[in-house]
Each structure stands twice: as structure tokens, then as C-alpha cells.
Simulated assay, not measured.
Amino acid sequence: MWSDATIRVDAVLYDLDRNANKMLYSVVNKNGIIGYIITDNGQTKVIEFALGESPYQNILHKDVDIKSINEKVNKKINLIYDAGTYFYSSDDNRTITKVDVLNNDSLSAVNSTLNDGILVSPRSIWQNINVIPGVPAETNNPPTIGCGPVSAMNLVKYWDSHGYPNLVSDSDTKQILYNKLYSALSCFPFLGDIATLPDSYKEGVRNYTTSHLVTNLIVLRYSSISNSDISILKTEVNNNRPGTILYDDSYRYGLHYVTFVGYAQDLVGDDFYIIHDLWSSTNVYRSWSNDVSDMNFWSIFTFRFN
């Protein structure tokens, strides 16, 4: 739990139809902002939270007091949260601008002693939390920009230190390991980015491990994800087996591979899952039901050794 911290109301958040439907909070201690929370408008359900400042913080300006923040937001700027993506409107709401989280330090990691961001929300306490320890959080920053090979890198490095030491050589830098996985996963340039097809990802990870003398890896791919499939992810986490999620999320992540590392639940029974999103080294908590209802999941990959 984040100890010695208070929760501060920062702003009302709107959807793209200009309806007020979310609330933004900052978690603050004597050192300043250490986390943020987004809830529904009734403050009964946590939609998202993470360590660090919220993606909106550069717009809110951290050097003004809360009264000034509220006046600024209410009179000049509307903050918009829609399908997990951050926007703001200005110029009397004639222009809507997407907040670029890649160029924002909002999600940067802070004091690692904060116990992975587990906290008390405005009206609920987190329970049934399980995070796999020791999963790497490599990012797909240039020149290793392919999310497919970088998400696979997180898994390969994890297994290398958990019983399969042949998977990563002592001479493998991040770039060298990335290049090996890029080839194994049959990645290719596409529209200025790097593409990895789902079946190529599944077979490529297995081919990589086989080529490194680990022949007993089983890779399963799940599509058409439903609410009940949270049980698949929970089973993997409970057995200390990180996996991969491939998003088809046009608002925030786009076509993007991430590493799942855990799950959590609040007292009213809402499920959250925890990822390394490759954009930061912070654990990111996302609502399972929201992502299912928004059809953000393309595939989920699980990995086990027989």
C-alpha cells in the first residue's frame, strides 16, 4: 500500500461526446505526486491507476494549487478520457488533441519501494493481488522499436533466470537479443513500424527456445476473449508464468504486444490485470471488463514447459 499518502481530486474527465463520466485523482505524499487514479463518475469503480503523474499533468500544471487547477479545467480546458486514451479540448472545445504519453514523463517509474503501486482507492481496497516477481520490463525505445520482439525478450529473459539458463547468452546485449528475436519471430517493417503476425509470434518464440536447447515449451494462443477468460490469465500468474497480450486498441495502444505480469481485484469484485506495456517500466493496471467490452484484445499468448 502507498503509505503516508493522500488522494486529491484533480479534475472531472469527459468522453468524446462531452459527457462527464470519469474522475481524476492524484496520490500525493510529502515528496509530491506519486501516483494517479481514474474512477467512474460515481467514484465506485477504479478504471485505471499507475505510479507517477497522470498523463494530464503537463496540462494541469503541477505548480498551481487545486483551486487554480479546477478553474483552469472548468473554464478553459476539458480533459477527455475515452476508451483508455487521453485527450483535451481547448479553444472553446473546437479542437480535440490527443495527449502524447510517449513524450510525457507521467508514467515514469518512481520509488520502487512503493510496493508496485498497490493503494487504497477512494471507496474500495484492493484485494486478491498477485504480481509475478522478477519479470523484466524492457521498453521498445529506438532502435529496438518492435513491440513483438521486445515483449518476447521480457519472457525469454525471465525464463533464463528461472530454470532455463541457455536462453540468453552472457554476450547478448539488448540489441543482440532483439535482433535474434526479430529474426525468429519473422518481423518485418510496416508503415514506419515493425510488424509481427500473431501466428509468427507464437511459432517464433517456440523456435527461438528450441534453437537454444529448450525443446519442451508449449505456446497457446487465445482469441475471441470474453469476461470469463480472466481465469486463463489468473492461472498463468498463479503459476508464475508471465505471458503476452496483443492489443487491437485504436485509441491507446494500437496493434501492440505487451507482457502481462499480474492481476488484482477490488472489494466489489471488479477484475484488473497488470501489464508491462513496453512504454514505461511501471506496472500498468487495466480494467479487464472494459477491455473486453471495447474489444481491445486480439490475442493472448500463454507459455509453459511440459
Rank of each mutant, 00 (worst) to 15 (best):
D4V: 10
I7A: 05
R8W: 11
D10E: 15
A11T: 13
A11K: 06
D15H: 14
R18Y: 14
N21W: 10
N29Q: 11
N31W: 10
I34W: 02
Q43V: 15
V46C: 11
V46Q: 01
E48F: 09
G52Y: 04
P55S: 04
Y56D: 02
I59T: 10
K62I: 14
K62D: 12
I96S: 00
G117L: 02
G117C: 02
V120E: 06
S124E: 07
W126R: 03
N130Y: 07
T139E: 12
T139Y: 06
P143I: 10
P149S: 06
A152G: 11
M153T: 01
L155E: 06
W159P: 01
S161M: 14
H162T: 12
Y164V: 07
Y178S: 03
D193G: 09
L197A: 13
P198V: 02
G204A: 07
G204P: 02
V205P: 03
Y208M: 09
T210I: 15
T210V: 15
L220C: 11
R221E: 12
I225A: 03
I230Y: 00
K234V: 10
E236D: 13
N238C: 06
P242R: 08
P242A: 07
G243R: 05
Y247T: 09
G254L: 05
V261D: 00
Y263Q: 04
Q265S: 10
V268I: 12
W279S: 03
V284S: 00
Y285G: 00
V292S: 08
M295F: 11
S299T: 03
T302M: 09
F305C: 12
F305Q: 13
